[in-house]
Design a protein around this nucleic acid. Structure first.
Lengths: 200, 200
DNA sequence: GGAGTTATTGGACAGTTGCGCAATAGTGAT
DNA sequence: ATCACTATTGCGCAACTGTCCAATAACTCC
């Protein structure tokens, strides 16, 4: 394989790892699979990464961070709190993308066995909660939302969303994507004192 | 090891598999672990079971079914709908002790890649939903609860519970067990038109 | 050009996995 | 007591895993 700039190479290794993870799942991602995906030898991976656990954690972290940043950007393109909330839901439940949620399912399951992954998963979950929480606090400060407990409200809405989406992704159609959207909108309206139908 | 009645032996193998699964998770359950748990040779397992996949699926199915039956029994020991609902929450969050929930996390993650496991996981999830749904419908029929959509209400409450408990089990204490209890009680009260504080 | 650096290779290693199979040893019937 | 039956053994096998390492080859600088 052609010699490559170390930074780019590391980048490409993480990217290859991510795509293997999405195809086979975190538990079934091996050094050799990553090397094959990359078209290099397996030894190369350990020249850039000290352990497989570290690599998997980094790949997950990267994917989840990108999702989070994409959501934050989508939210920031709206100015009104209600609009921003709407954008939050929209970016959280991307209908075309099962792989994102599947990655989270893998991460939650593997967290018990991989301390590094657990730490990353936990941190990113908290980041999502914080994103929603500040959005709610902003809405309250501007007087268009009301909540006695924005922290808790964020956890409740996020958990409802996770629990519902989980059914979609893991079981096919026990719960439909449309129901996830409608029900989480309704929950947010009740939780934040919004008139029914406020969220599209 | 003493010779044993084939039916009992098969039973004991599934039971041993289950306890290993609860301790180490689905992905980390091996033939040799099960044999060690049982105190027999590893070869014996394959004398009763054609593949490891089959054994794991069967053990998961058994575990979840037992949890479900335990919950149903706990509910049936109450007569008033509110009391029965209270018992439902109690048995659901206790089943999530830790080991039980880890099993579900593993199952949800693996479901997309293992059809047999997906089928079992899906069926059991739907059973839980049905249990809660009939409980709600009963409460409505007796005039102590109100819901326009018992089916959906059951999915929403269950998913909230799953999402919250998931945080407890996967991440330690992002959300505490007490919060799970309080928040899901509150959600049920709002969802079913019960006065605040109705559920203990 | 040649020399030094280092990205890359491909295989060795010790560990694990699910599974198969000949041999052994209980068990009940005759 | 001898038989057929089969539960049980424990090892062997091939395939896989993460990790490591000497050899190689590509690149930069002089």
């Amino acid at each position: 394989m052609a010699r490559m700039n170390p930074d780019l190479r590391r980048e490409s290794i993480v990217a290859a790892t991510l795509s293997v993870m999405q195809r086979h799942g975190i538990a079934a991602t091996t050094v050799r699979d990553v090397a094959a995906e990359l078209g290099t030898s397996s030894g190369l991976i350990h020249h850039y990464v000290t352990s497989m656990d570290e690599l998997i954690t980094e790949a997950f972290e990267r994917a989840a961070t990108e999702d989070l940043e994409r959501a934050a950007a989508a939210i920031d393109s709206g100015s009104e709190p209600i609009d921003r909330l709407s954008r939050f839901f929209e970016s959280y439940t991307r209908a075309d993308d099962d792989s994102g949620m599947q990655l989270w399912l893998d991460a939650w399951a593997e967290a018990a066995r991989r301390p590094a992954l657990q730490q990353a998963s936990r941190r990113l979950n908290e980041d999502w909660q914080r994103l929603l929480c500040t959005l709610i606090q902003d809405g309250c400060a501007r007087g268009v939302m009301s909540s006695e407990d924005p922290e808790g409200a964020a956890w409740r809405l996020l958990s409802l969303l996770d629990g519902l989406t989980l059914q979609c992704v893991a079981h096919g159609d026990t719960v439909t994507r449309e129901q996830v959207m409608i029900w989480s909108h309704r929950a947010a309206e009740m939780e934040l004192g919004l008139p029914h139908g406020t969220l599209t």
